[in-house]
Structure formats: structure tokens, C-alpha cells
Design a protein around this nucleic acid. Structure first.
Lengths: 353, 353
DNA sequence: ATCATTTAGGCGAACGTTCGCCCGAACGTT
DNA sequence: AACGTTCGGGCGAACGTTCGCCTAAATGAT
């Protein structure tokens, strides 16, 4: 609100041309130490800070990275967002960039939003999340040759992304249950259309096969990630005889796992001691349930850092060692998957071949 | 990436000066319908979109609103953020603004971040959240005469804010329990230093007084908002005789309420039927617990809309009807506060004097 | 026919940077 | 003594807008 201090003000005080001030500040030229000192003194005395808007115009850049996320269906949990956003904001800030969040529009006029942000020069690049199978945004951005990094795997070649190995996460959870002595393990998944869902289920299958345990079709249930889905599937499984029904359940989502837990408890069995349960995402929910729910935790903070790192390197035309990063999740173990809950403390185990 | 279309390109095609194109597009001048058509045709043909960076420089504005939030302690739930952010982003977008999230710095060099964003002209205004008693940011911004709106009540006169009436929320919850026939009601609060905490507790007191019920000091516990705090306080209360111990508990946080529920269940009592419990914030958690936890829900979406509305009106120098908005929360009723849980459906009741 | 007024649009300037090119002086080299 | 080279710094231009002022023609009033 008070009048802005510009290069010219500094220059007048230091008795040099304003372009020289600019160059000295950006270390583009060498001047006598005397003038250099005068300039820096003037900068400090006046409290000069370069105007980003002018820089943006001149450089034809905005130093902004667009990001829009899907508002998780009205009342769903989005534990990811807070952390992911924070991670990206911090990483971007550290290298002179900022995040520009924009509303996730209807799937159809998606592109218009993106196009507009590009055309108006508001952003230099995009972070994409919740990408789908044939995502029109990716096709569009690639055609426009506009830089972007996706969070989540992307099939398109030459697209940069950071992903968390869902298969490995689910393998970890399943293997953990197997190590507890479980042999009859059922799985709660998402509909077949969901790429992430299928990848996670693949981890279940891999762990079972690895231990030479049978994978039965009727022990794999798919549905929307609601409590109800998990509840009903589990209830159905529990109707089997005590010697034939599953003794453990892995779920691709914490919410599905909650459904399973509820069904187990209502049928008079104990979660953990009688039937082991694991979830996915390590939603804040998981630690507050009784018993605490074991869950696969994604390294969200790390992912955010990597996404920005990739994108900024690309924007700065710096060489980057890799164009795609795959991170390993870890399993946070709580009583829900333990036969005897001797200790209530959490332990996290991660990938070990 | 492809070469940018500017006013000059449009002008050349429409055979007018580029300034005229600008004026026509901004409806600053009247021209013959023929030229107007030529201009609009050229705009469409070339796909012209004004460069925001140039506009920003020229207008000495950025059309950005800074917002930083406190990263809820590592593993805490921040159900607010997703919705609040989304609401603000949507509201801002609708009036040609954008949100600029920036890292919440250490309490000490707080101000530097804010100052820098102002000086570099990156933002036109700020949204403040989690304001404290004597918030240095507010003093700073007021001194600089830089526009801002706080989410959460602010004592400083002439500061604009949007707040949710925590007192009313807690009164609602307490009154609901009283209506169920409860007379001995305890409260779980935050430390005395917390302004919000005290305001909420005031609602508890108001409801009790209103029903001529006694407020006993030892039935008001304060502590950090952890499960443990709620658990221990409740355990302690339950040691009282069946005729003297509280029959219901109101908490200023869902997490505290979870602690209470756990203590109740572990002592063999039923939540709802034996001891009523209510939480606050309607965290996603609340609906997934067994039994579902009644909780006070804040109109977060509405708050986000109002915050942006206030701020933008202020920036556009438009007159605004009010400089501070106080919203009423509603109580979402679930089995945890019902004596007999005949229906599992949720109902929401709101302020009715 | 003359003058005042509107209409239609041109033009210069400015917002605050950065970049490339220039030039005079001092310096060192043959 | 004449000549390249570095040093220290000036200057014009451009990024794409918007805003205010100007003007030439067309219109209206007298």
C-alpha cells in the first residue's frame, strides 16, 4: 500500500543507472567494490525487493505450478491432501516457485481450465493427480508440449510421474498376515476399472502365490470404497464354516477395512485375535479405531518433494537423472493384524526383499 | 510454448491499433459495429487471451490471495483444510482471483514471509487462519494497511473476519443431551490459553445454566486434544458411583470424544445407551466409529465463500454490508448421544432459539 | 454556411524488470 | 608509440497491458 521501492529509487541513491543495479543484484556484471557497496547499502536502506510481476512479464514466466485435485466425494476422507499440498508448497517455495490451486472442473471442460491457465501465462507447469486410464489432460498437455508431472503412474511414454508402488504395499500387508500364520486370506478391492485398485490387488496375489497359498475368486470382492461394501462382503465370508472361512482380510482402503472390522465385531469375533485386518492409506482414522488398524502408509511428503523437484528441473532445463520415480510404501502395524496384541505400540516395516 | 498471441496480432488482423482492441475488449469505448465485429472475429480466429502477467504489472495487482495454514501436528486430522481450501479456491476463481498457499513458517519469522509476499507484489490480500490471542500478523498487516480477512474471531477492531460460533455449537450439543434426559453432564476442553476452547466451553455452561443444571468444576477437564486426555479424564469420572457419576460427556474435539468412548467401552458400559457422548468438528472419523459419534459440524464451505467474498469486496473497493460474519454450526446426531438407537440415520439440527 | 458536439479510433506513456550492445578509460603488450 | 584487452558502467529496447489525451470526420443546432 505504501509506495513501492523500485530499481530506479535504489539507483538514484547509489548514483548509478538502474540497469546497473539490476545487474549487480543478479551478479551479471562486475563493478568496483565501492559502487557495489553503495548499491547494497541503498538496497538495505530503502528496503528494496524486486517486483515479481515485472519479472514475470519480462521473463515470460510466472513461477507458478498449477494443481487441482478431485474433491473427494462430499464426506470422504482426504488425508492425502493436507500433507501432499504442504509438501509441494514447501518444496516449491524452497526453489522460488509457488503452487496455484484451481478448482477441479467437470471432466468435460477440464481442458478449458488448463488451456486458460496456460494462455494467460498464469502457470509454468502442472501437477496432475488422480489421473485416469486415458486421461485427456495428458494428451492435451503433451500435444501442447507444456510441462507437467503426474502423481500416480501414467502409461504415456515420455510423461514424467511420481508413483507409489501400490502392488508392493499390498504385498507387504498380505505377507505380514501370512507371517502371522494366516493361510486363508480374503481381499477387498475396488471395481475392475480402477487402475490403482487392480495394481494393489496384484500385490495380494503376488504375496499369496509367493507363499504357495491359493487365491480363490470368491475371496476377492470388489466394490465402491464404502463401509457398506466391506461390511457386506465380510459378513458373507464369515458365514462359511469356522474351518473354511478366511482368517484374515486385506483391504485396498481403510474405509473398506472399517466395514470388515464392523462385520467381524458384530458377529462376535475379535479383530486381530480371530480375524486379521489391514487397510490402506493410513488414514488418520486407522489409529483411532479400536483396535487400531494396520495400514499401508504412502510416503506422501516424499512424493510431493519429488513431484516438484522433477517439474522444476524440467522447467529450468536442468538435466534430471530420472523422469519417473516410484516410491515404496510402508506397513504400519497395529493390533488389528496381530494374533496377540502384547504391545500397543506401532511399528512400521518397509520393503525388504 | 507455442508463440503467444498478443493484442498486436489481433490488431493487425482487424486493421486497428492494438490499443483500440484493448478498449473494445474491455468495453471502454464505442466503435462502429463493423470494426467491433472485425475485432471479435480476429480474437476468435487467433485464439487471443490476455496475458495476466502484463495485466498484473500494469494494474499493480496480482489477483492472488495468500493463505497459509498450520500443518496440524504430524499425524493429526485436518478435515477442515480440504473443504476450506476448495471452497476458497472455487469462490476466488469465480471472481477472477486465485489462492496462493505458502508454507506456515516458524512463529518468529512469520512476518518476513508476509512482508516478502507483499513487497514482491505476489499477493493482493491475505486469508489468515488459526489466529492467536495477540497475533503479530494482524498487528503487522494493520500497520501496513494491507487487506486481510481472518477465519476465526479476532479482537482487533476494524479487522474483518468470518467466524463460527463455537459457543453456540457446544450449547447445541449440550442442550441435545439435556433433551435426552441427561442431567449430569461433564465436559472435555482445551487448555485455558485456547480462545476457541474457552468459547466452546462457554456454550456448555450456558446450556447447563439455561436448564438450571449444576456446573461442577471437577466435571470440566482440560488438556491437549489427544485421545489419552479424553480417556483418562473419562476413566476418572467413571470411578464415581453409578448415581453420582456423569451420564453424558461433551467434548470440544472429536479426538477427545474418542478417548471418552474408549474409556466408556472398556469399563463395560455402552456409549449412547449408558453414557452419551458428543464431539466437535464432525471429522470424517465421527461417522466411521462404532457407534457413530454425534458431532458439531462447522459450515466450512460457507465460511470459505464468505472469507473470499469479504476480501475481494474489500480489494475492489466495493461497499460491503458487513465486515464480520458469524456463522452457526449444526449438530449432527448419531447413536453416540442417543439413549436408544432405533434409527441409524443421521439427523442434523441447527440453531433454533 | 458556421459553429458546437458527438463518434470512431489513433497514439504516447507507463508499470518494473532484464538483456544485449555500446563506449570510455585504464591497463598491459609488442 | 601504437594497439588489443579488460574493467566499469551507461543506454535503448522489450515483455503485453491499460489509461488518458488527442484528432479527424461526421453529425446536429443555429
Amino acid at each position: 500500500m505504501t509506495d513501492r521501492v523500485t530499481l530506479k529509487d535504489v539507483a538514484a541513491r547509489a548514483q548509478v543507472s538502474y540497469q546497473t543495479v539490476s545487474k549487480v543484484l543478479n551478479r551479471q556484471t562486475r563493478v568496483s567494490t565501492a559502487t557495489e557497496k553503495r548499491i547494497h547499502d541503498a538496497v538495505r536502506a530503502l528496503g528494496y525487493t524486486p517486483d515479481q510481476r515485472a519479472r514475470n512479464l519480462r521473463a515470460q514466466r510466472s513461477y507458478m505450478l498449477g494443481y487441482s485435485w478431485r474433491p473427494d466425494s462430499p464426506n470422504q476422507v482426504n488425508p492425502i491432501l493436507d500433507l501432499f499440498m504442504h509438501s509441494m508448497v514447501a518444496a516449491a517455495d524452497a526453489v522460488g516457485y509457488h503452487i496455484l490451486p484451481f478448482p477441479h472442473p467437470d471432466p468435460e471442460d477440464h481442458i478449458d481450465k488448463y488451456r486458460d491457465l496456460i494462455r494467460t501465462g498464469r502457470v509454468d507447469g502442472f501437477v496432475l493427480s488422480s489421473v485416469e486410464y486415458q486421461d485427456s489432460r495428458i494428451r492435451f498437455l503433451q500435444r501442447e508440449k507444456f510441462p507437467f508431472v503426474a502423481f500416480g503412474g501414467v502409461a504415456e511414454p515420455s510423461a514424467m510421474y511420481v508413483d507409489v508402488d501400490g502392488t508392493e504395499g499390498m504385498r507387504l500387508a498380505t505377507a505380514h498376515l501370512i507371517a502371522q500364520g494366516h493361510t486363508r486370506i480374503a481381499a477387498l478391492g475396488w471395481p475392475k476399472e480402477s487402475r490403482v485398485g487392480e495394481l494393489r490387488l496384484a500385490g495380494y496375489v503376488r504375496a499369496m502365490r509367493g507363499a504357495k497359498l491359493p487365491v480363490r475368486a470368491r475371496w476377492v470382492a470388489r466394490g465402491t470404497g464404502s463401509v457398506e461394501t466391506g461390511y457386506q462382503a465380510t459378513q458373507h465370508w464369515l458365514q462359511g464354516g469356522e474351518r473354511t472361512r478366511p482368517t484374515a482380510i486385506v483391504a485396498v482402503t481403510d474405509v473398506l477395512a472399517i466395514g470388515a472390522m464392523r462385520a467381524i465385531q458384530e458377529s462376535g469375533l475379535r479383530v486381530g485375535a480371530d480375524i486379521g485386518v489391514t487397510g490402506f492409506d493410513d488414514t488418520p482414522l486407522a489409529q483411532y479405531l479400536t483396535p487400531g488398524l494396520s495400514s499401508v502408509r504412502q510416503p506422501i511428503w516424499q512424493a510431493g518433494q519429488n513431484v516438484i523437484d522433477l517439474l522444476v528441473h524440467c522447467l529450468e532445463q536442468e538435466p534430471l537423472a530420472q523422469t519417473r520415480v516410484v516410491l515404496n510404501p510402508e506397513l504400519v502395524i497395529r493390533p488389528s493384524s496381530l494374533l496377540h496384541a502384547d504391545n500397543t505400540s506401532e511399528i512400521a516395516i518397509t520393503h525388504n526383499e
